[in-house]
Design a protein around this nucleic acid. Structure first.
Lengths: 113, 113
DNA sequence: TACAATGCATTGGTTTCTTATGTATCTTTG
DNA sequence: CAAAGATACATAAGAAACCAATGCATTGTA
């Protein structure tokens, strides 16, 4: 089962920031695979969505890049800038609060962890 | 604090369906006010978003309408159809699962209720 | 009597994502 | 060894969902 793309709207930036926060540096393709793996394929990030998002985050000054070569193949690694780290904390916190609000609105019982 | 509109994207239909599920019948303006009130103003539904959504849900056969007059003022009440009720259950369940997935991805601890 | 609130609705524009396509390299398999 | 699939980047056209602004009309309030 894959979540309807409607649900995932608006969460992509937060996911990317959080992954980079926990992994120091990652490249685009790696991000798509990691998310697929971590969510049991329930969230699939398409490259057409990811790359523009990465470029946007870089433009915003939240990410820095460094290119590496594996043989002849290019890899573009992304890392959080200091502002990116701050922004990540902010966004994750906001999302957590949003989830609480939604859980209340939809009368969803929190899962016991 | 109001949640960034980015976050709320994709949740509007679910919210509307759930409210109608719990309240038998509601009119548009009432929905905007109820959500504002239930979320401590953290979620604001604009009318430009709500009315097209209500019309879409009606087109999908999930809602039925009945017009009532309060003096000269029109009120258009929306109610769930049987398919709407089924869809609501489905969507809320999907959202709950999505929240679990996101909590895991973002490493968010569930709030103790 | 003016302003705010109630109540419906649409329109134009933006953001965000999807689908499709393009280029190139590396690995696996028949 | 050729073809297919995986890896890896990227863009472009279009759809979907939402926001901000506006419009109309009625009711309540200062």
């Amino acid at each position: 089962m894959i979540y309807s793309s409607e649900l995932i709207k608006g969460t992509l930036k937060t996911i990317v920031l959080k992954l980079l926060n926990d992994n120091k540096k990652m490249y685009g393709y790696e991000i798509t695979q990691r998310v697929k793996e971590m969510t049991g394929e329930k969230i699939q990030i398409t490259e057409g969505a990811l790359y523009p998002t990465l470029h946007a985050l870089e433009q915003e000054g939240l990410l820095t890049t460094q290119v590496e070569y594996m043989g002849k193949r290019v890899r573009k690694y992304y890392s959080l800038s200091p502002e990116g780290k701050a922004k990540t904390k902010e966004r994750v916190k906001e999302f957590a609060s949003f989830m609480d609000t939604m859980a209340f609105l939809l009368d969803i019982k929190p899962k016991i962890a």
